[in-house]
Design a protein around this nucleic acid. Structure first.
Lengths: 345, 345
DNA sequence: TTGTAGGCGTTATCAT
DNA sequence: ATGATAACGCCTACAA
């Protein structure tokens, strides 16, 4: 039940004024060595910790970063870990809110964090979000904000993301090089930036290899194992079925895999499969699934670093755009011929 | 750049005193209808939000709960989601810190959260933690604290956990009923409570079925896929190798599975396997792995509810112990004969 | 070198 | 019904 000590307590016990104590504790210039030492000694004895609320109230910063993420699955929780690491290092505390991919929830979270007087935001946008006024409100308040992973063109803010187009390109070109001809793509929700970019990469690779795009092989579906399963079933029921599938997430790759197995097709012989994210699960299933690696931890760290910079930098950083390069991990699900890229992790 | 409005702003614009505004906003009894309405109207127009720092400073509560977890893997992040849900509902904000299974980091997190003046704690203990003085400090401050999932006998605090012994019992008895005779267990780290309890359940089941315990079949190892893999290799190299393995986590079950496959043994025919937690991954691998379900989300919610109760309740709740019952999901890795328990999820 | 006083935004007590 | 004022814990001119 012992209440934390305050500078007032220390001042009283030492018969000095509050300001002297305050000064001593923050080693201000004008203060007698002896009094200072006495203050420090006593403050340590009493286990003095400055009251953060009072501090924050006074200096109008909470040293807290509001982080909003659509969920806490493997990839995002790894990113958050990266953010946490860097933020802690820089003396910031992180407050994480999940929007559960819900637009309404995201607005709520933004408001809550704004009410909590966080010093700024690090954000990954929910898949449901089309209007971003709630985020603009943040900027309108003059608070720094960094977007990561899922960026959106509607927001002018510093951002960190993977080169998703490159990722889509890598995956698709790999399949082409393995001799697959009719490559389908399970792209994510239509409005989501990452989906589009990965799709762009897919199209680019086809173009480069002079394969003409077949819209029947481009399936938009939710970031979801079940959807991917059903979508794949339909793909495999086509007269001219695809001989390879690129899914823009591993979760979807799993769904596709289940449908492929159910149909009795063998990977990589009958059909090739490549996922995205390189989550641990891809090397646990049989066959192991090739996947484009998402450097989650690094990306999280980069986002936090960029935030700190934005924070300490008066210049306008809103056009800074950090792009990490993806790498493909080739595994059993798509390896038919000699391997050209990295293997395992 | 528009700074948030304060009651002072409102007071000035309305030519009334600060206290009148304050009263109007918190519909206190003594206040004129007209002035109140004027205040409310303006406060809405200015989008007034009370400053949480000032509030907290004044009333000495932050409405924030500090949550410390060893990691944010599937199980724990689901639990945190449960905590979050209930806390939000009750008007609390949650601050999550990961200890990364590190004792030192846990101490650091405790201190940070204490410094942040959280109103209390919801904690799951790191596997490395043997001394719990840092947690006792919390109680010493008079702050409520609830332990969940990984409880420890050294701490007298309200807790929520799974009946781990029952879980161990269920898994083991199931294997026995499937006709397995030599059942090995990959128990976790020795000091960890959950490990011991699940092991207790295992032993209890053996006793009940008059099988004598063989210490060579009890392997203590880290909560870790690789360790489990190597441990299983050794088990399978024994002269009289086990014909079933119960691992106290799914991660470990995966490790065991890899070793089993490598050895060329078939599940469930040659050897049975049961895991713990019932993570989604167990039904993605081949064969699908039987597992004791951990109701993570529910457990998280229960922990938060218990916290809120403890908070609002003056009585001593430190001996309240909520225990959730586990349930076994039988899958391919251990189903040899007629099924008696639930299937799928 | 040290102390006094005002303020951060809010609520609560006491007058008016 | 309303207003002044002190207080929460801290910092910082300014005064001494």
């Amino acid at each position: 039940m012992n209440k934390p000590a305050t500078i007032k307590d220390i001042a009283q016990r030492l018969n000095v004024s509050i300001s002297t104590v305050s000064r001593s504790l923050r080693n201000a210039p004008d203060v007698n060595m002896e009094t200072r030492q006495a203050v420090i000694a006593l403050s340590e004895e009493l286990n003095y910790q400055p009251n953060k609320l009072a501090l924050s109230l006074r200096q109008k910063q909470t040293h807290t970063i509001g982080v909003i993420v659509p969920n806490l699955d493997y990839v995002l929780s790894t990113m958050v870990k990266g953010i946490d690491e860097v933020a802690l290092e820089a003396g910031y505390t992180v407050m994480v809110c999940q929007s559960n991919e819900s637009y309404g929830r995201e607005i709520l979270n933004t408001r809550r964090l704004l009410d909590s007087l966080v010093d700024g935001f690090i954000i990954s946008v929910s898949s449901e979000t089309k209007i971003v006024d709630h985020f603009k409100k943040i900027q309108h308040r003059g608070l720094p904000m960094v977007i990561f992973d899922r960026v959106t063109p509607d927001l002018t803010a510093p951002s960190v993301r993977l080169d998703n187009e490159e990722g889509g390109f890598l995956a698709t070109e790999h399949l082409l090089e393995q001799g697959y001809k009719r490559i389908a793509i399970l792209a994510g929700p239509v409005n989501l930036g990452v989906s589009n970019s990965r799709l762009e990469g897919y199209i680019k690779a086809l173009k480069k290899h002079k394969i003409k795009k077949d819209d029947n092989l481009i399936i938009y579906c939710d970031f979801n194992q079940d959807y991917a399963y059903y979508a794949t079933r339909e793909l495999l029921a086509m007269k001219k079925r695809p001989d390879a599938i690129f899914t823009i997430s591993d979760r979807m790759a799993i769904g596709a895999m289940l449908a492929i197995k159910e149909k009795g097709l063998k990977m990589p012989h009958d059909i090739g499969l490549v996922g995205f994210n390189n989550e641990p699960v891809v090397s646990l299933v049989t066959p192991q699934i090739s996947s484009v690696d998402m450097p989650s931890f690094e990306l999280g760290k980069a986002a936090a670093k960029l935030f700190i910079e934005t924070m300490h930098n008066n210049e306008d950083m809103s056009h800074v755009e950090e792009v990490l390069r993806p790498r493909l991990y080739v595994r059993e699900s798509s390896r038919r011929v000699m391997v050209k890229t990295g293997k395992g992790k």
